[in-house]
Each structure stands twice: as structure tokens, then as C-alpha cells.
Design a protein around this nucleic acid. Structure first.
Lengths: 106, 106
DNA sequence: ACTCATATTGTAGATTATTTACAATCAATG
DNA sequence: CATTGATTGTAAATAATCTACAATATGAGT
């Protein structure tokens, strides 16, 4: 079965790489209100890919994953800052994995 | 390496399942102009998840994949209708794979 | 050259979604 | 009860998308 998945969805890692979504979609995907996402960003906990201010926010896969991790920790009782600190190592692992996946294509 | 990917990104299939993006993001991801996406939709070649007319279009992973496949075939010289016909089997495979992935979680 | 079908693109005016900025609320803790 | 951290509410402005009608482009057939 794992073989079949690789056949049909191997491109998904390319896809993940290109994936950029707006705040509304992130909110739908994560169930985190847009207001809360902006607040976290104001606080510097997460970041967006927005080029200029005033333009709509854009998030990539890594950003979205980070939000989901933070959300989990908040539910467990962490403060925002503590949650951000706690997931640093985890985020590094994810980044490393994504880097390896990109390297594959070359 | 495959093991590590599974560890870090196993959730991605859940993610794919929830993923819904607007037309602007689809355009960025696929390099297909929004105008062309709407045209294909008018022609019935692709579909969106939009609930009511007038509201913004939303696309899921399957829709986006379909657009990419069609784009490839157009480049090869197929007509729109011929391309749509040609990818039917391929789309069914993808749907089947996604179904299997959803089933896993249960 | 003309026609016909297919595919794409342009745009105006209306509507939806997002932005920033300022303020209010709420819960926990000393 | 004052303070801090976290969240939420909202108005006014802007960005992005919507529909609808029209124009353009390209190739195949006669």
C-alpha cells in the first residue's frame, strides 16, 4: 500500500513546497480564528510571507504546521511564549525534512 | 530516510484532506491564471466547492491536481475536452488513494 | 479567404474578504 | 483589585474576487 501511495501522490512534496494560502483558508484548515492568527503574528510568535503591509497575508506549510503545534500546547496549558519556545526543536526537524525533500528533486 | 519523513510529516495526509484554497492561491501554485481557471469551470471541465454563487471559489487538493494534469495535456496539444477525458482514469486512482488514506485514520 | 468551433483574455461595476488600528473583555495570579 | 497575558470586537479602508458581456486568437475544414 505504501508503494501505491508513493506512485499516486509522490508529487505532493513538490506541492507542499509551493503551497501558499491566505488567512481565511488557514483558519478553515486549523480552526483557529483569523483574529487569533493575526494576534499571534503581532506578537511575533508566527510569521507570514506578506511582501508589503496592507496586502493580504500568505502562509506556507511550515507556518500552518507551527500554528497547529502551538494550538495543541495552548490547550495543554502553556502560555504563548512557552509554547513557541517548546516547539523550536520540533520545527527544526520539520524544516530539515522539507529541505531533504527539496534536495531530492535535484 | 523514508522513516524519518513518515515521522515528521505523517500528518500531511490529514492536512491534504482539509486543504481548501482560494483561486488566487491556486493560481500561484499552478501558474494557471485565475481567468483561465474560471473559464475551465464555466465549461464544466473542473469544479469548485463554492456553496453559493457570488461567494469566492474554493478548491481542494483533488481539484488542484486535476488542473495540473490538464495543463500538462494542453501543452502536449490536447483540446480541453480531450484532456478532461484522458485524465479520468488517473483522477479515479487519486481519489481511491485519498479514500484509503482517510480510512487509515479510523 | 471565409467560416466555424475552441480557447483565451479584457474589463467594468458590484461584492466578498482582509487589513490596520484602537479599544474592550476575560481569566489567572500575586 | 491591579497587573499581565490572551483574546475578541469593530469601523473604515483596501485588496481580491465575482459575474457578465465582449473581444481576440488560433487552427481546421471548405
Amino acid at each position: 500500500m505504501s508503494k501505491k501511495i508513493t506512485e499516486d501522490l509522490s508529487f505532493d512534496f513538490d506541492f507542499l513546497d509551493k503551497l501558499v494560502v491566505g488567512i481565511g483558508e488557514v483558519s478553515q484548515i486549523t480552526s483557529i480564528p483569523t483574529r487569533q492568527i493575526r494576534y499571534w503574528e503581532d506578537k511575533g510568535i508566527i510569521s507570514s510571507l506578506t511582501e508589503e503591509e496592507g496586502k493580504n497575508r500568505r502562509y506556507n506549510y511550515k507556518n500552518i504546521k507551527k500554528m497547529l503545534l502551538i494550538k495543541e500546547l495552548l490547550d495543554e496549558g502553556y502560555t504563548l511564549d512557552a509554547a513557541a519556545e517548546k516547539i523550536k526543536k520540533r520545527m527544526e526537524l520539520i524544516e530539515e525534512t522539507l529541505r531533504k525533500l527539496s534536495a531530492r528533486k535535484a
